[in-house]
Amino acid sequence: MTQDTSAATTHNQPLSAQTPTNDVRQRFFIEDSPVRGDVVRLSRSYATTIAQKPYPEAIKRLLGEMLTAASLLIGTVKIDGRLSIQLQSSDSDSLLNWAMAECDQNGIIRALASWKADNDEQVQAWDNMIDAKQAFAELGEAGKGVLFINIQPDGGEPYQGIVERSHDNLADCLAHYQKQSAQIPTLINLASDGLQAGGVLVQMLPRTVQETVEVEQNQDAGIDDDLWTRLTMLTSTVKDEELTTLAASEIIYRLYNEESVVAPEPVSLEFGCTCSREKCETAIEQIGETEALDILEEQNGSFEMDCGFCGEIYKFDKDDVTAIFAE
C-alpha cells in the first residue's frame, strides 16, 4: 500500500503538545504495512449536539458513540459528502424510536434521536438506564431493529448499507459490517460518558499484488505476519475512560508505541447544521399551497418550522407562503 506521508511525521512518543486534544480525528499508519487507523475525540462538538434536546442519559451516550463512529467511518471512504449512521426500531414497544448521527468530509457533525417518554413508567425506565449499550438494546434482541450506513456524495448517487444486528453493541456491529461487506478486517472501539466521547478504528487493507506474489513464493517481503494479531491484542486493552479523556495522540502512543507510527495532521471536528429557510420553503412547496394556507388559518395567521438538530426556528406568514407559490 502506498500512502502520501509528505505531511506526516514518524513518532515513538506522543505527538506535539500543540496538537488539538479535543474535537479531532487523528489518522495514523503503521509504517511499511497495510494498516491504517483513526482516533476520534469529541468534547465541545458533542456537548453542543446533545444540548439541543433533553435526552435521557443512555441516549446521550449512544449518540456520543454514533457521532464518534460516523467521524471514524467517513475517513474510510473517498467521497466529498456525508456519512450517517441510523438506528431504527422495529418494535412498537421499544422506548427508542430512532437515532442518527452524521459527519461530513469537512468534519461537521450533528445527531438526533426520537424516544418515548409519554408516561411515568417510560420516564422511570430511561432514568434506570446508564449507558449506551442499554439504549442500543432498545432496538430489540439480536436480529431485530435496523442499522443503516448512509453515504451521500455531493452531487452523486446515495448509497445505503444495511448493518447486521450481530452483536449487542454498536462498535462490534460496525466492525462486523466492515469485515463482511468490504472484506477488510476492522477493529472498532467506542466510548461515551455523556460529556465526552471517543473511539479508535484500525483496518488491515488488502496486500498489493506484488506483496501477495512474494508471500506465495515464500520470499522475504518484509511483511510482519504477526502485526494484525498484535494490534488486535493492543487495541483491546484501551479503556473507555481513556477514549473519553485522553488526547488522540496520547491514545495512539499508549497503544502502539512499539510500532513505527506515521501520523498526518489531525482533522478538526465541530457541530454544524445544514438547515436553512430555503429548505423549509421547499418543504412547504411539497405540501402544496392549499394545505399551507389551511395550516396558516389553523395557526392564527402564522406557523413555525423548527430544526431538531440545532433548534433554529423559521417563521412563515401568509405573505411568505404566497411568495413561495408566486415564483
Rank of each mutant, 00 (worst) to 15 (best):
L95C: 06
I162W: 06
L201V: 13
W115S: 04
P153W: 04
E138V: 08
I188M: 08
A132Y: 09
I184A: 05
K133W: 02
T186E: 10
L96R: 01
I109V: 15
S92D: 04
N106V: 01
Q196I: 03
P206K: 09
L174Y: 10
C173H: 12
W126H: 01
D93V: 08
Q160L: 00
Q105K: 01
D154Y: 07
A182S: 13
E164W: 00
S114W: 02
E211Q: 15
Q122W: 03
N128V: 00
R207Q: 12
M204K: 13
T186K: 02
C103R: 00
G145N: 11
D172E: 12
K144I: 03
K144Y: 09
A101N: 08
L112G: 00
L187Q: 08
E164M: 10
N150S: 10
I151M: 14
D120A: 04
D120N: 04
I162N: 09
W98Q: 11
G198V: 07
V146H: 10
K179Q: 15
V209I: 13
I108M: 02
Q196K: 12
M129G: 01
E211T: 15
A113V: 06
R165L: 05
Q160F: 03
G107P: 05
D168R: 08
E141Y: 09
L190N: 04
L96G: 03
L190C: 05
I151C: 07
G161P: 01
S192Y: 10
I184E: 14
G107I: 10
F136R: 00
V202N: 10
A125R: 05
A182T: 10
D168Q: 14
I162P: 02
S181R: 10
H176L: 00
A99Y: 00
L201A: 06
M100S: 12
E121Y: 00
L112E: 14
S181F: 08
N150Y: 04
G156I: 07
A137E: 14
L139F: 14
D104A: 00
I151Y: 12
F148V: 01
I149N: 06
G140H: 13
S92I: 03
D193M: 13
I130S: 14
D168H: 14
M100H: 08
S192C: 11
P158G: 07
S92M: 07
G140S: 14
D93Y: 06
L190R: 00
G140M: 11
S181V: 14
E157V: 01
L201K: 11
G199L: 02
V163Y: 13
G199Y: 10
N169K: 09
L187T: 09
I108H: 02
C103N: 06
Q152I: 11
Q180A: 12
K133I: 13
V209Q: 13
E102N: 08
K116W: 02
Q180V: 14
D104Y: 07
D154S: 11
W115F: 10
S114D: 15
G199M: 03
I109E: 12
E164Y: 04
V163I: 15
Q122H: 01
A117N: 12
N189D: 02
G143F: 11
D93Q: 11
L147H: 07
T208P: 05
D93L: 08
A135N: 02
G199T: 09
L95Y: 09
